[in-house]
Design a binder for these strands. Structure first.
Length: 306
RNA sequence: GGGAGUGCGCCGGAGUAGGAGAGCCGGGCCAGACUGUAAAUCUGGUGUCUUUGACUGAAUAGGUUCGAGUCCUAUCACUCCCA
C-alpha cells in the first residue's frame, strides 16, 4: 500500500511515564479536536481498580468518551492479545465517524501491538499457562529450559534464559500447540489503514519524581487504602500485581504501617516510571515533547492531519 | 566528668586470630532488554583514570612491622552504661 492509498485517518498516541499528565492532556486535546479517547493502560482496563491506577475521574470520563477503561474484570485473563483485538476493533469503528482518534496510556507493549502488530498465533488457554507456572515454581527454571532446548532450539538461542515469564509463555505455547514458538515469529509488521503520530510526553526527572510523590499522597487521601481492603481477597490475581497495591496488602497483613508503605509506594512508582522512560527512549520512533507544551502538540497533530 | 563499644565506597548487613579488596550479600540509584502476565518479568553497572590494565582507599594524624582495614598512641564522631 502506498502513501496515497492510506485514507486521511490519524491515530494520535499520547505516551509517556506515569504521572506525567497524559490523562488530562489527552482529554483537552480530544475536546479540541472533537475526538474520542482509547486507553492503552494494562491496569485501567479493570473495573475494580480505580484510585491506585490513576483511572480518569467520573467527571473526566463524562467529559469525553473513553474506551477500554474499566471494561473488564480482574478475574478475567486479560492480556496484550485481548487488548489488541479490542482496541483495533474500537479504533476501526471510531474512524468510521472521525478523522482523528487519540490513544493514550502508559503500557508500551499495548501501544506497540497497535502500531506494529503482533504475529498471528493460536491462543493458549489460561490453565495451560498456570500448569507451566506451577512446574516452574516446583522444579525451577531448568525444567523449562530443557523443554525449550529440545522443542524449539531456534527460540532457545535468542530467549532471555533467566526470565521465567517469557519461558513459561514459550513452553506453554509449544506444549499446547505442538509447534515451535519461533515459527510464528515472522516479525512482519502489520500494515495499518491509518496514519500514526506517536508523541511521548516528558518532564525533567526531578519534576516527574516530585509529581509521583505528590500523586501517591493524593491517592491515599482519596481512599486508596479502603479500595485495597476490598481487593485484598483477590490479591493473588495478576491484575493485582500492581505498584502500590502490593505494598498496601502488606499493610493489611501487618508487615508494614501505612506510614512505612507510602515512601515504598512512591519508590516503586518512580522505578516503574523509569522503566517506561527506557521504553519510550528505545522502543519505536517517538516524538518527545515536554508535557507542558500543548501548543506544540496541537501543531504536530494539525501537521499530521495534512 | 568516668567507663565500654563502634567507625570503609550512596545505605544496611556479614566478615576480618597482621599476608588486604576497590571484595561478598541485600537495598537504593543509574543504564538496558521486551511479540499475549508488561504497573509484570529479566539483565548489567555503581572510587578515579589514559579501562585486556593502572592508581588511590578502611574516621583523622602519627607509630610498630618485611607487610596494617586488622596492633599501639593521640584526636574526632556516634552509640550505650555510670554520674
Amino acid at each position: 500500500m502506498s502513501d496515497k492509498d492510506i485514507p486521511n485517518k490519524l491515530l494520535v498516541i499520547i505516551g509517556g511515564p506515569t504521572a506525567v499528565g497524559k490523562t488530562s492532556l489527552a482529554i483537552s486535546l480530544a475536546q479540541h479536536f472533537g475526538a474520542e479517547i482509547v486507553s492503552a493502560d494494562s491496569r485501567q482496563v479493570y473495573k475494580e481498580l480505580n484510585i491506585g491506577v490513576g483511572k480518569p475521574s467520573h467527571e473526566q470520563l463524562d467529559s469525553i468518551p473513553h474506551h477500554l477503561v474499566g471494561h473488564t474484570t480482574i478475574s478475567s485473563h486479560y492480556s496484550a492479545g485481548s487488548y489488541t483485538r479490542d482496541a483495533l476493533d474500537i479504533i476501526d469503528t471510531l474512524f468510521q465517524k472521525h478523522d482523528i482518534v487519540f490513544l493514550t496510556g502508559g503500557t508500551g507493549l499495548y501501544i506497540k501491538a497497535i502500531t506494529d502488530g503482533f504475529d498471528q498465533m493460536p491462543e493458549v488457554p489460561a490453565d495451560v499457562n498456570e500448569y507451566w507456572t506451577q512446574i516452574w515454581k516446583e522444579k525451577g527454571i531448568n525444567e523449562l529450559l530443557i523443554i525449550l532446548e529440545q522443542k524449539d532450539p531456534e527460540y532457545f538461542k535468542t530467549i532471555d534464559r533467566a526470565n521465567p515469564m517469557r519461558l513459561i509463555r514459550a513452553v506453554s505455547f509449544i506444549m499446547h500447540t505442538g509447534l515451535p514458538f519461533s515459527s510464528f515469529h515472522t516479525g512482519q509488521s502489520s500494515q495499518r489503514t491509518f496514519k500514526i503520530l506517536p508523541i511521548a510526553l516528558e518532564l525533567p526527572r526531578d519534576e516527574l519524581y516530585a509529581r509521583i510523590n505528590q500523586r501517591v499522597l493524593h491517592m491515599v487521601a482519596d481512599g486508596w487504602m479502603e479500595e485495597a481492603m476490598t481487593l485484598y481477597p483477590s490479591r493473588h490475581l495478576k491484575a493485582l500485581q500492581t505498584v502500590g497495591y502490593k505494598e498496601l496488602f502488606d499493610v493489611i497483613d501487618g508487615k508494614l504501617s501505612l506510614e512505612e508503605a507510602i515512601p515504598l509506594i512512591q519508590q516503586s512508582t518512580r522505578r516503574y516510571a523509569k522503566r517506561q522512560m527506557t521504553w519510550y527512549r528505545n522502543q519505536g520512533e517517538w516524538t518527545h515533547v515536554n508535557a507542558n507544551d500543548s501548543d506544540l502538540i496541537i501543531r504536530l497533530i494539525e501537521h499530521g492531519m495534512g
